[in-house]
């Protein structure tokens, strides 16, 4: 327990000292969102129809940038070596790192997507659906992104995206559907997303541990 607490505060300290970790996804998200009305249409009706999909795509892309590099720094500077020497549980390391990354990158994006009510005319009555599905969906995506990052440690970033994007397809479909369809259907999608989350947390985090290990062969 003391290791978990210690490691958690270490991660929080590192993230809070490197503000670009938090700011760059936000900037990327806003730029992406701004492009769509300019490129597609500025008609409020059309935009509000497209809004759920656009928000989901932009969050996926913005989140992808940071989650794929969560193990990179510890790998490059030799911190992972020390974890192995000390015999720390890599499962705990992986879970803490993913969770802290989610707090610092996904949470601001979720809060920011509330403003899409104004920018993209997102229907207010569905805001709850959007936020709920984003909470679950971004967590799942974080796990897949971490796996992609762990598999491609020290390799180019396109590879990590190529691994991550097909994996996160169900989340994109379920999430954007949850925020599109009427309130009666919401429980169905939220349940499916939670099922996916419960299913992916153990499997993907164990796969992450194995994927990091393979860089030490």
């Amino acid at each position: 327990m003391s290791f978990l607490k210690n490691f958690f505060s270490r991660e929080v300290l590192i993230y809070s000292k490197k503000s670009s970790n938090v700011i760059s996804p936000v900037i990327f998200f806003l730029i992406c969102i701004t492009f769509f009305p300019l490129a597609v249409s500025n008609d409020p009706n059309e935009l509000s129809k497209l809004a759920p999909g656009l928000i989901w795509i932009c969050i996926l892309l913005a989140g992808m940038l940071s989650i794929q590099t969560i193990f990179k720094e510890d790998y490059d500077d030799g911190s992972l070596d020390l974890f192995y020497v000390r015999g720390f549980s890599m499962l705990e390391v992986v879970l803490v790192k993913i969770f802290v990354n989610w707090i610092f990158t996904a949470l601001p994006l979720i809060l920011l997507s509330c403003s899409m009510v104004f920018l993209l005319y997102f229907p207010v009555d569905k805001l709850f659906n959007l936020i709920g599905s984003l909470f679950l969906g971004t967590l799942i995506i974080s796990f897949f992104g971490a796996l992609a990052g762990a598999l491609s440690l020290g390799k180019n970033s396109i590879l990590a995206s190529a691994i991550m994007l097909p994996l996160s397809l169900p989340v994109l479909i379920l999430g954007s559907s949850a925020s599109t369809y009427s309130n009666e259907n919401i429980t169905f999608f939220i349940l499916l997303l939670s099922a996916l989350l419960f299913f992916s947390v153990p499997i993907i985090s164990l796969a992450c541990v194995g994927a990091i290990r393979l860089h030490y062969e």
């Binding site: 796996l147 598999l151 691994i163 994996l167 499997i203 993907i204 796969a207 194995g210 994927a211 393979l214």
Partner: peptide, 8 residues
């Protein structure tokens, strides 16, 4: 690496 990816 590809084994893990193929499984997942």
């Amino acid at each position: 690496a590809v084994s893990i990816l193929a499984m997942v």
